[in-house]
Design a binder for these strands. Structure first.
Lengths: 120, 120
DNA sequence: CGGAATCCCAGGCGATACTG
DNA sequence: CAGTATCGCCTGGGATTCCG
């Protein structure tokens, strides 16, 4: 797939306008914790506690609100099992996987160049 | 290029650790204004005033600090011409273009799905 | 024109405690 | 275990003014 900025302008000519839907979604998925949570779930389904441990440094509050946002966006699916003690699992939806197919190459590139970039 | 989370873990096994360089760079380029500025420069060289008008809603303070960060990261090049009135141009570096090659497919996808996502 | 400096505020975010 | 509730900090970020 060839992609150009012109195409983006056609698809959503408002990317650079305030209140544009694209900006809203970008804010969700490109946020500090959004990417890390999505990234963690790329491995597969995780429970609340596993996510909390995986994404080091995230507070319970931010994990909760990040997950709620991503679930509302239809990118993450929450499954609650009626057990005692309670068990809740989070996984990417099909939409979420589509998204991560596009995001992984970017993160991969950043991971490969981050050291060179920050040591300037 | 096939990309997996496993590869990312190999390249930078610390993505999920606090203070990891990858997190720092991600914070720069995936920030609210970082993406929009990089996106605007994908079209080509722009002057300060053009950038300010292109990225609607950005304040002078945020434009300045965003540009300084991206320039320090080696993703954006700043060229100042010794004229009166002063003229300053910003453009992507080779590194910045490499980055945007990976980011454009992602933004393109988001632009195409944003409406469906936010109207939930 | 292209910024830098200053002031100031909302709310993002962390820490802690509590609950079903 | 998987959250919610509450409090309070601190800083991201807007508005304004000034400078080379």
């Amino acid at each position: 797939m060839v992609v150009s900025l012109a195409q983006i302008r056609e698809t959503s000519g408002e990317v650079f306008m305030e209140g544009c839907p694209t900006r809203v979604v970008l804010d969700h998925i490109m946020s500090k914790w959004g990417v890390l949570v999505l990234l963690a779930l790329t491995d597969g389904t995780l429970r609340w506690g596993e996510l909390r441990r995986e994404v080091q440094g995230i507070s319970e509050k931010m994990l909760a609100s990040t997950l709620r946002t991503l679930e509302a966006d239809g990118l993450v699916a929450r499954t609650s099992y009626p057990e005692v003690p309670p068990r809740v699992e989070y996984a990417l939806t099909d939409l979420g996987r589509e998204l991560m197919d596009r995001m992984l190459p970017l993160v991969e590139w950043v991971a490969g160049h981050a050291d060179a970039i920050v040591e300037r």
